[in-house]
Amino acid sequence: MSNTRFTVDDLKRILSEGSGEPEGVGLREDTVDTEFTEIGYDSLALLETNSRIEREYGLRLDEELLETTTTPRALIRLVNDQLTSA
């Protein structure tokens, strides 16, 4: 993962800035495979998060791929794939 430019910490910061801190543990290294809804972020929070990622990293995330992206690990991978191919 040497080309990883978008990390768990980046996602955690963006989630928090756009949608606030959830109750419970939220996003950590050990919850990257937990569904977003389970760690306290609903679909609107993800919409806001994706919008923030796009403008911060200068990307356009594929909406169809986003619909099937339900865990932090999957979203981080999707963003890094796009960053690498860009």
Partner: peptide, 8 residues
């Protein structure tokens, strides 16, 4: 209020 509610 919970943190999740503040930005919304």
């Amino acid at each position: 209020l919970p943190g999740r509610l503040l930005p919304q």
